[in-house]
Design a protein around this nucleic acid. Structure first.
Lengths: 261, 261
DNA sequence: CGCTATCTTGACGCGAGTCAATAGTGGTGG
DNA sequence: CCACCACTATTGACTCGCGTCAAGATAGCG
């Protein structure tokens, strides 16, 4: 089956045949993960309950309803987190790129399917082990708590997007987010690689494939982006995109109290 | 200005002139809060950085952009958490009822306005003090972490609602959630009291006041609910509502792997 | 009792979904 | 190497649900 590109350097795909299996000390993704700047003792303890797992593009890591035996951090590749409703409606709650922690939840069961967009490698942690470690090392739990708060911020911004933005605005916001995320991965150019097909973008932004396509065309017509390939987006007018995505600035905003009624 | 009812027993409104200012040991809302079942030492420490704050209906507790000097727990009444976009579009991210913790966030600034729907009393905690306490008492941080995860679960469900449900389904889900929340407050009847006007429901569910009104009428016509007063909803057919709100069961679901494609 | 704000209901229009046709793309096999 | 196939993406025509606008009903408050 034809999938989006595998050749995204930003996503830390395995290069020159190198193995995914590497010691944490060599982990290139670590600066992005919750385990960054953990003291050596905690690092070692964490490593003792960790193992590497590879998921091939298109296959499923966990299914909605599975017991939460493990939690994960993406180290290379890209995943999607999906809710499928009984009648076929679908929602992609989030995409997970390197550094992202998967499945913060209160439930003891997974609430979403987690599927690989590209060949992906993850750090897998035994859930009970993680809970135990959090008790032993409050510092670790603190880091996870921080991450959860960050995800909450993002989730709430996404609500605003879903509830109040029109398709073009949603797409602008999505592209900006992806750009920021890929920049964090070290690839700070304005050429984006989309690791997901249009259908996933649609289900992430609460619209249809056709509308995604039309909105992309709109952005291209307005000279805000270029689309050299299906899975590649060049940002031509960053301020223009930001102006469209009203909420994007608020996301970064720190204190500057904007205009109010 | 005419506001929704003040006489909601579920919301722990102050009764027979009693003062809000009560010792934690007497706090009726405590079983619902993150501070439930904290050991006495931690309870005392927490109390030392806490104070009671009252916000009158219609007034604002914090504004988007304010520095996060305090965090809060609602002890009586109801608040709304609001994002106002520059062009007037509005999103009510959440309603906060007794027991709810306000403003989990990574940002050092508030990202939303928080306004009182009814006269509301809160426990106010100095933010820096709370951070310090979390370091001293990992157990406390653990409780907060749990809460944050719970909020994340809820946020993600709300995304599905905003992205993929139609107005009637959204309203059904909303009423069920409210019923569950009021049940947790001890009022387990099927008579709901809405502490917010239609406009807030609309902005919470990503629709307009008119559509909220029409959808309520639809539910009434289908005999799923009755509307004896503007701010009161009687649930006549619980299973019927649950059937409408497809995602509602998934929210409670624990392991039962439903039908999939 | 009348003012004002909210809520409800109706008529209408637009934007996004649906359906359908075409173009593009990548993989496979002759 | 090229032709074919399957799938995805794009574009257009049409439909319909929800938003917009407007009028009337209801309720709280002075």
């Amino acid at each position: 089956m034809p999938w989006p590109p595998y050749d995204n350097p930003c996503l830390f795909a395995p290069q020159n045949g190198g193995s995914f299996l590497e010691h944490c000390a060599l982990c290139r993704t670590r600066p992005l993960s919750f385990c960054a700047v953990l003291p050596p003792v905690e690092m070692q303890a964490l490593e003792s309950i960790a193992s590497t797992q590879i998921v091939l593009a298109g296959s499923t890591l966990v299914r909605q309803g599975d017991p939460r035996r493990y939690v994960y951090t993406v180290t290379a590749g890209a995943m999607r987190v999906v809710r499928l409703l009984p009648d076929g409606r679908r929602q992609v709650t989030a995409f997970a790129l390197p550094g992202n922690y998967l499945s913060f939840s209160q439930s003891e069961y997974h609430r979403y399917d987690i599927e690989a967009l590209t060949d992906t490698s993850l750090c897998r942690f035994n859930y009970d082990g993680m809970v135990a470690l959090c008790t032993r090392f409050p510092h670790l739990e603190h880091k996870l708590f921080e991450r959860a708060c960050q995800e909450l911020d993002e989730a709430r911004e996404h609500m605003v997007l879903l509830a109040r933005m029109n398709p073009t605005e949603r797409l602008a916001d999505f592209l900006l987010q992806l750009a920021a995320q890929q920049a964090r991965c070290g690839d700070s150019g304005n050429i984006l690689t989309l690791p997901m097909p249009r259908a996933d973008i649609a289900d992430h932004l609460g619209m249809t494939v056709e509308t995604v396509s039309r909105s992309l065309s709109t952005l291209r017509t307005r000279q805000l982006i270029a689309l050299p390939e299906t899975y590649r987006v060049v940002i031509l007018d960053l301020p223009g995109l930001k102006a469209l995505s009203i909420s994007y600035d608020a996301r970064e905003a720190t204190g500057t109290n904007g205009s109010r009624r």
